[in-house]
Design a protein around this nucleic acid. Structure first.
Lengths: 247, 247
DNA sequence: AAGTGGTCTAGACCACGGC
DNA sequence: CCGTGGTCTAGACCACTTT
């Protein structure tokens, strides 16, 4: 079940917090240690995690309290489908085009391959509850995807496919977000008026060992999609160490 | 200097990491304990932080290694000035208007005060390297700011003022981001063409004890400002505890 | 087998908040 | 003043990687 004690008591503490109101105090740490039969270090490790994730709030000299529930999940490297499900929509998808192109200078630089390299290019209309939400164009080096037919991406998550068929583990990604307006083609595809406000997302995803797996350019409808982010406090009161600024 | 040992050795470890190449291993933890004269728990606390922030990577049974440098800092609750400095711009500001208004239904709901409550309203043009970057309109309950003159916000950070003059500690905030286009007035103020792409930010900031401190509505030029975010991998391999999902 | 990071303990003292 | 969270120690054993 739980490999480690702190994982186990983490769950027990969450159960306990769930039966308290927001703002109510948990029992003192030393008491919880006795209840759970663990040392204070181990107990604190579990509480540390929960406090860092925003479920509990500690106040020195006073106690540990149940935090106000989080409003949003932070941005993470999730697929369109996961993102939509989290937002309460039913995701679907329609492939607009699929083929192989040569990278050229700009895409080559983005994907860290030579300009002559061949890329898979798949353009998809993304729908939420049956209504258009975004146009997504994905580029990925063909050499990573030996034997992949171009229409195979209709039904499967690209990340799942990479992982299960090619054994590539997705590491982390970098995403830039800009405001833009839809052009003629985009407006028609998304069924919105010309020059509607929209997000332009550009995402580069790498494997655990640092290779670029994909470059994705997406246009999201501004009237249906917005970003909500929870912002942590500016500076953890204790003065941050300055040495790291050189890194 | 450093209130705690782990903060001190955190800095020493960063210095050490800075003199190594990306991918090189740090000395073993037990060795570092001797060098720094601390217990293993304390040493690990410093390394834990640095690993969590992405500067170091641990591999069990193998060692601790210098990580690939981060490309971006995550979104955080920073002021315009801090944000611009981090991006390498020189921030400045010009007050467009300042006064007191009554909240009304919409703003009252945002700030969790009655519709009759009085609000400070300050509208500012924000500049980066002397060029227009954003229009920011701030609302804050007048009752929080007893004795504040309306022109006092020109030179000071609002957060600093809250903290130092009123003893209010900024907790966390929620921000929504939408794409939009500039209207006539905004275009003129920002000196951009009519209907230029722009970000609309709406931010609600609370104190540590949960009161709403401010509601800020900002229009950022899309041609000068963009968001870069580092996206963590979809799921931390180790299965997360499921008990917390009920909260 | 040796060396590394990962978890855990029992107990001490410090710093802060509230009575 | 007492109770709370915050930091720290010395030492033990486990799990994994490398040789």
């Amino acid at each position: 079940m739980h490999r480690h004690k702190y994982q186990h008591i983490r769950g027990r503490i969450m159960d306990m917090a769930g039966s308290l109101e927001v703002g109510e105090a948990l029992p003192p740490e030393r008491g919880l240690c006795e209840v759970f039969g663990v040392s204070r270090v181990t107990l604190r490790r579990a509480v540390d995690e929960l406090a860092r994730e925003g479920y509990l709030v500690r106040r020195q000299g006073s106690g540990t309290f149940v935090a106000r529930p989080k409003i949003t999940q932070p941005l993470t490297l999730s697929s369109f489908s996961e993102d939509m499900r989290r937002r309460g929509f039913m995701p679907s998808s329609r492939t607009l085009s699929a083929g192989t192109v040569s990278a050229g200078a700009r895409l080559g630089r983005r994907l860290e391959v030579s300009p002559e390299a061949e890329l898979l290019e798949v353009s998809r209309l993304r729908l939420a509850d049956g209504e258009s939400m975004a146009i997504e164009t994905l580029y990925s080096p063909r050499e990573l995807l030996t034997g992949l037919a171009e229409d195979e991406l209709t039904d499967f998550s690209f990340y799942d496919l990479l992982q299960k068929r090619y054994g590539v583990v997705v590491g982390s990604g970098v995403q830039t977000i800009e405001p833009t307006v839809t052009n003629g083609e985009e407006s028609e595809t998304l069924a919105v008026p010309l020059h509607s406000p929209a997000f332009l997302f550009e995402r580069t995803t790498r494997s655990e060992d640092g290779r670029v797996l994909e470059f994705v350019r997406s246009i999201y409808r501004g009237d249906r999609y917005r970003i909500t982010a929870e912002l942590p406090p500016p500076e953890p009161k204790a003065g941050r160490d300055r040495a790291m600024e050189g890194v």
